[in-house]
Protein backbone atom coordinates (compact mmCIF):
# COMPACT_ATOMS: atom_id res chain seq x y z
CA UNK A 1 0.00 0.00 0.00
CA UNK A 2 2.77 2.39 0.94
CA UNK A 3 5.17 1.33 -1.77
CA UNK A 4 3.53 3.11 -4.73
CA UNK A 5 3.31 6.28 -2.66
CA UNK A 6 6.93 5.95 -1.80
CA UNK A 7 7.90 5.43 -5.42
CA UNK A 8 5.77 8.34 -6.53
CA UNK A 9 7.48 10.67 -4.06
CA UNK A 10 10.87 9.35 -5.04
CA UNK A 11 10.30 9.83 -8.73
CA UNK A 12 8.41 13.09 -8.80
CA UNK A 13 9.68 14.99 -5.76
CA UNK A 14 13.10 13.75 -4.73
CA UNK A 15 14.13 12.91 -8.32
CA UNK A 16 14.02 16.41 -9.78
CA UNK A 17 15.63 17.84 -6.64
CA UNK A 18 18.55 15.44 -6.84
CA UNK A 19 18.84 16.10 -10.55
CA UNK A 20 18.91 19.84 -9.88
CA UNK A 21 21.58 19.41 -7.24
CA UNK A 22 23.77 17.31 -9.56
CA UNK A 23 23.20 19.73 -12.38
CA UNK A 24 24.40 22.65 -10.27
CA UNK A 25 27.85 21.00 -10.07
CA UNK A 26 28.06 20.26 -13.78
CA UNK A 27 29.68 22.31 -16.51
CA UNK A 28 27.70 24.19 -19.11
CA UNK A 29 28.32 23.74 -22.80
CA UNK A 30 26.98 25.99 -25.51
CA UNK A 31 23.44 25.43 -26.78
CA UNK A 32 21.81 23.98 -23.64
CA UNK A 33 24.59 21.48 -23.39
CA UNK A 34 25.66 19.96 -20.12
CA UNK A 35 28.96 18.26 -19.52
CA UNK A 36 29.07 16.06 -16.47
CA UNK A 37 32.41 17.19 -15.10
CA UNK A 38 32.37 18.31 -11.49
CA UNK A 39 32.88 22.02 -10.81
CA UNK A 40 31.94 24.59 -8.22
CA UNK A 41 32.28 27.41 -10.73
CA UNK A 42 28.51 27.86 -10.88
CA UNK A 43 28.43 28.72 -7.19
CA UNK A 44 31.54 30.85 -7.43
CA UNK A 45 29.85 32.82 -10.19
CA UNK A 46 26.94 33.73 -7.88
CA UNK A 47 29.42 35.69 -5.80
CA UNK A 48 29.98 38.12 -8.68
CA UNK A 49 28.57 41.56 -7.73
CA UNK A 50 25.94 41.59 -10.46
CA UNK A 51 24.36 38.38 -9.15
CA UNK A 52 24.79 39.29 -5.50
CA UNK A 53 22.95 42.50 -6.31
CA UNK A 54 20.17 40.46 -7.84
CA UNK A 55 19.84 38.50 -4.61
CA UNK A 56 19.95 41.72 -2.58
CA UNK A 57 17.29 43.27 -4.81
CA UNK A 58 15.06 40.23 -4.47
CA UNK A 59 15.44 40.37 -0.72
CA UNK A 60 14.68 44.05 -0.64
CA UNK A 61 11.52 43.61 -2.68
CA UNK A 62 10.41 40.60 -0.65
CA UNK A 63 11.11 42.48 2.56
CA UNK A 64 9.25 45.63 1.48
CA UNK A 65 6.28 43.65 0.20
CA UNK A 66 6.10 41.48 3.31
CA UNK A 67 6.27 44.49 5.61
CA UNK A 68 3.46 46.25 3.78
CA UNK A 69 1.41 43.06 3.61
CA UNK A 70 1.80 42.77 7.39
CA UNK A 71 0.55 46.28 8.02
CA UNK A 72 -2.38 45.88 5.66
CA UNK A 73 -3.20 42.23 6.30
CA UNK A 74 -2.98 42.13 10.07
CA UNK A 75 -5.73 44.67 10.76
CA UNK A 76 -7.82 43.12 7.98
CA UNK A 77 -7.60 39.63 9.48
CA UNK A 78 -7.99 40.94 13.01
CA UNK A 79 -11.16 42.92 12.33
CA UNK A 80 -12.54 40.16 10.15
CA UNK A 81 -12.52 37.85 13.16
CA UNK A 82 -14.67 40.36 15.04
CA UNK A 83 -17.37 40.49 12.37
CA UNK A 84 -20.71 38.75 12.69
CA UNK A 85 -21.03 35.32 11.13
CA UNK A 86 -22.60 36.85 8.04
CA UNK A 87 -19.95 39.55 7.84
CA UNK A 88 -17.23 36.92 8.02
CA UNK A 89 -18.75 34.99 5.13
CA UNK A 90 -18.91 38.11 2.98
CA UNK A 91 -15.36 39.15 3.81
CA UNK A 92 -14.16 35.64 3.06
CA UNK A 93 -15.94 35.63 -0.29
CA UNK A 94 -14.45 39.01 -1.20
CA UNK A 95 -11.04 37.64 -0.31
CA UNK A 96 -11.38 34.42 -2.28
CA UNK A 97 -13.09 35.85 -5.36
CA UNK A 98 -9.88 36.89 -7.16
CA UNK A 99 -8.61 33.30 -6.94
CA UNK A 100 -11.23 32.33 -9.49
CA UNK A 101 -9.37 34.34 -12.10
CA UNK A 102 -5.93 33.42 -13.35
CA UNK A 103 -3.32 35.51 -11.58
CA UNK A 104 -1.70 36.62 -14.83
CA UNK A 105 -4.99 38.01 -16.05
CA UNK A 106 -5.47 39.79 -12.76
CA UNK A 107 -2.06 41.37 -13.12
CA UNK A 108 -2.97 42.62 -16.56
CA UNK A 109 -5.88 44.26 -14.81
CA UNK A 110 -3.37 46.26 -12.84
CA UNK A 111 -1.76 47.40 -16.09
CA UNK A 112 -5.11 48.82 -17.12
CA UNK A 113 -5.35 50.66 -13.83
CA UNK A 114 -1.77 51.88 -13.66
CA UNK A 115 -0.87 52.69 -17.27
CA UNK A 116 -0.39 56.24 -18.51
CA UNK A 117 -3.93 56.58 -19.83
CA UNK A 118 -5.22 54.20 -17.19
CA UNK A 119 -7.93 54.36 -14.59
CA UNK A 120 -5.85 55.74 -11.73
CA UNK A 121 -4.34 58.54 -13.80
CA UNK A 122 -7.78 59.36 -15.12
CA UNK A 123 -9.14 59.69 -11.61
CA UNK A 124 -6.15 61.69 -10.40
CA UNK A 125 -6.23 64.19 -13.27
CA UNK A 126 -9.99 64.65 -13.22
CA UNK A 127 -9.81 65.32 -9.49
CA UNK A 128 -7.13 67.89 -10.28
CA UNK A 129 -4.64 66.17 -7.99
CA UNK A 130 -2.04 66.08 -10.73
CA UNK A 131 -1.55 68.16 -13.85
CA UNK A 132 -0.26 65.61 -16.30
CA UNK A 133 -0.59 61.83 -16.00
CA UNK A 134 1.99 60.21 -13.70
CA UNK A 135 4.27 57.42 -14.70
CA UNK A 136 2.95 54.67 -12.50
CA UNK A 137 3.46 51.50 -14.48
CA UNK A 138 6.85 49.88 -14.95
CA UNK A 139 8.20 51.21 -11.69
CA UNK A 140 9.28 49.76 -8.36
CA UNK A 141 6.07 50.84 -6.59
CA UNK A 142 4.03 49.17 -9.33
CA UNK A 143 5.81 45.88 -8.60
CA UNK A 144 5.20 46.30 -4.87
CA UNK A 145 1.52 46.96 -5.49
CA UNK A 146 1.32 43.80 -7.57
CA UNK A 147 3.09 41.79 -4.88
CA UNK A 148 0.80 43.08 -2.15
CA UNK A 149 -2.19 42.34 -4.30
CA UNK A 150 -1.20 38.74 -4.87
CA UNK A 151 0.07 38.00 -1.37
CA UNK A 152 -2.36 39.89 0.85
CA UNK A 153 -4.99 37.13 1.05
CA UNK A 154 -2.47 34.69 2.54
CA UNK A 155 -1.62 37.09 5.32
CA UNK A 156 -5.26 37.98 5.98
CA UNK A 157 -6.35 34.35 6.19
CA UNK A 158 -3.43 33.39 8.35
CA UNK A 159 -3.99 36.24 10.84
CA UNK A 160 -7.73 35.65 10.72
CA UNK A 161 -7.46 31.98 11.62
CA UNK A 162 -5.25 32.90 14.54
CA UNK A 163 -7.53 35.71 15.74
CA UNK A 164 -10.54 33.42 15.37
CA UNK A 165 -9.06 31.08 17.94
CA UNK A 166 -8.15 33.89 20.27
CA UNK A 167 -9.78 34.01 23.68
CA UNK A 168 -11.12 37.56 23.87
CA UNK A 169 -11.62 37.28 27.60
CA UNK A 170 -7.84 37.53 27.84
CA UNK A 171 -8.10 41.05 26.49
CA UNK A 172 -10.72 41.83 29.10
CA UNK A 173 -8.46 40.32 31.75
CA UNK A 174 -5.63 42.61 30.65
CA UNK A 175 -7.91 45.65 30.66
CA UNK A 176 -9.15 44.62 34.09
CA UNK A 177 -5.59 44.44 35.37
CA UNK A 178 -4.80 47.97 34.30
CA UNK A 179 -4.03 47.90 30.58
CA UNK A 180 -5.45 50.54 28.24
CA UNK A 181 -6.63 49.42 24.80
CA UNK A 182 -3.20 49.80 23.21
CA UNK A 183 -1.37 48.05 26.06
CA UNK A 184 -3.88 45.23 26.03
CA UNK A 185 -3.27 44.82 22.30
CA UNK A 186 0.50 44.76 22.67
CA UNK A 187 0.64 42.53 25.74
CA UNK A 188 -2.11 40.05 24.91
CA UNK A 189 -3.62 40.25 21.44
CA UNK A 190 -0.33 40.49 19.57
CA UNK A 191 1.38 37.58 21.37
CA UNK A 192 -1.80 35.51 21.01
CA UNK A 193 -2.01 36.14 17.26
CA UNK A 194 1.75 35.92 16.71
CA UNK A 195 1.62 32.39 15.21
CA UNK A 196 -0.78 33.66 12.55
CA UNK A 197 1.33 36.71 11.84
CA UNK A 198 4.49 34.60 11.59
CA UNK A 199 2.99 32.08 9.19
CA UNK A 200 1.60 35.02 7.25
CA UNK A 201 5.13 36.40 6.99
CA UNK A 202 6.49 33.05 5.84
CA UNK A 203 3.65 32.62 3.38
CA UNK A 204 4.38 36.08 2.00
CA UNK A 205 8.13 36.29 2.13
CA UNK A 206 9.02 32.97 0.53
CA UNK A 207 6.77 33.28 -2.51
CA UNK A 208 7.68 36.93 -2.96
CA UNK A 209 11.30 35.83 -3.48
CA UNK A 210 10.14 33.87 -6.47
CA UNK A 211 7.25 35.83 -7.97
CA UNK A 212 9.32 37.14 -10.86
CA UNK A 213 6.44 37.32 -13.30
CA UNK A 214 4.97 40.23 -11.31
CA UNK A 215 8.23 42.14 -11.66
CA UNK A 216 8.29 41.26 -15.34
CA UNK A 217 4.74 42.36 -16.04
CA UNK A 218 4.43 45.42 -13.82
CA UNK A 219 8.11 46.33 -13.67
CA UNK A 220 8.73 45.98 -17.37
CA UNK A 221 11.87 43.83 -17.03
CA UNK A 222 13.71 46.72 -15.44
CA UNK A 223 14.14 45.06 -12.09
CA UNK A 224 15.77 41.67 -12.27
CA UNK A 225 14.93 39.24 -9.49
CA UNK A 226 16.50 35.86 -8.75
CA UNK A 227 13.43 34.22 -10.21
CA UNK A 228 13.76 36.07 -13.49
CA UNK A 229 17.49 35.39 -13.51
CA UNK A 230 16.93 31.65 -13.21
CA UNK A 231 14.34 31.74 -15.95
CA UNK A 232 16.64 33.75 -18.18
CA UNK A 233 19.57 31.37 -17.62
CA UNK A 234 17.38 28.45 -18.57
CA UNK A 235 16.04 30.08 -21.71
CA UNK A 236 18.05 32.77 -23.41
CA UNK A 237 21.23 32.27 -21.37
CA UNK A 238 21.01 28.55 -22.00
CA UNK A 239 23.07 27.82 -18.90
CA UNK A 240 21.19 25.15 -16.97
CA UNK A 241 23.91 24.34 -14.45
CA UNK A 242 24.12 27.98 -13.37
CA UNK A 243 20.33 28.19 -13.17
CA UNK A 244 20.39 25.06 -11.02
CA UNK A 245 22.97 26.57 -8.68
CA UNK A 246 20.86 29.71 -8.28
CA UNK A 247 17.82 27.58 -7.53
CA UNK A 248 19.72 25.53 -4.96
CA UNK A 249 20.77 28.68 -3.13
CA UNK A 250 17.18 29.93 -3.16
CA UNK A 251 16.00 26.63 -1.78
CA UNK A 252 18.56 26.65 1.00
CA UNK A 253 17.48 30.15 1.99
CA UNK A 254 13.79 29.29 2.13
CA UNK A 255 14.54 26.14 4.09
CA UNK A 256 16.53 28.17 6.60
CA UNK A 257 13.66 30.59 6.94
CA UNK A 258 11.21 27.77 7.60
CA UNK A 259 13.60 26.37 10.19
CA UNK A 260 13.80 29.75 11.86
CA UNK A 261 10.03 29.96 11.88
CA UNK A 262 9.75 26.50 13.43
CA UNK A 263 12.22 27.51 16.11
CA UNK A 264 10.33 30.73 16.90
CA UNK A 265 6.97 29.00 17.15
CA UNK A 266 8.59 25.96 18.81
CA UNK A 267 7.56 23.34 16.32
CA UNK A 268 4.18 24.91 15.55
CA UNK A 269 2.64 24.19 12.19
CA UNK A 270 1.85 26.82 9.62
CA UNK A 271 -1.28 28.59 10.76
CA UNK A 272 -4.18 28.01 8.44
CA UNK A 273 -2.39 25.62 6.12
CA UNK A 274 -0.87 23.21 8.65
Amino acid sequence: MLLPLYLFTLVFVAGPLVYMLLLSFATARSGYGVEWTFTIDNYRRILEPVYLNTFAGSFRLAFTSTLLVCFLGYPFGYFMSKLSRKGKKQAMAALMLPFWVNSLIRLYGWIIILQKKGLLNHVLTSLGLTGKPLKLLYSYPAIVVGMIYVLLPFMVLSVYSSAEKMDWRLVEAARDLGAGRMRAFLTVTLPQTMPGLLSGIILTFIPSMGLFFIADILGGNKIVLVGSLIQEQMTRGSNWPFAAALAVIMMIMTTLMLKLYRRVTSGGRLEGIG
Binding site: D167, R169, L170, E172, A173, A174, R175, D176, G180, V188
Partner: peptide, 28 residues
Protein backbone atom coordinates in the same frame (compact mmCIF):
# COMPACT_ATOMS: atom_id res chain seq x y z
CA UNK B 1 -12.82 52.31 31.59
CA UNK B 2 -12.02 49.12 33.54
CA UNK B 3 -8.35 49.90 34.02
CA UNK B 4 -9.16 53.07 35.93
CA UNK B 5 -11.28 51.28 38.53
CA UNK B 6 -9.99 49.93 41.82
CA UNK B 7 -11.77 46.71 41.01
CA UNK B 8 -10.36 43.41 39.76
CA UNK B 9 -12.06 40.37 38.37
CA UNK B 10 -11.64 36.61 38.61
CA UNK B 11 -13.11 35.41 35.34
CA UNK B 12 -15.47 32.49 34.85
CA UNK B 13 -12.86 30.24 33.25
CA UNK B 14 -9.85 31.97 34.77
CA UNK B 15 -8.63 33.64 31.54
CA UNK B 16 -4.97 33.22 32.43
CA UNK B 17 -2.47 34.40 29.83
CA UNK B 18 -1.22 31.19 28.20
CA UNK B 19 1.98 32.82 26.90
CA UNK B 20 3.10 33.78 30.42
CA UNK B 21 4.21 31.61 33.33
CA UNK B 22 2.58 31.67 36.76
CA UNK B 23 4.72 34.49 38.16
CA UNK B 24 4.34 36.66 35.05
CA UNK B 25 0.59 36.13 35.07
CA UNK B 26 0.38 37.32 38.65
CA UNK B 27 2.79 40.18 38.02
CA UNK B 28 0.88 41.39 34.94
Amino acid sequence: PPYKREINTVFQKYALFPHLNVADNIAF
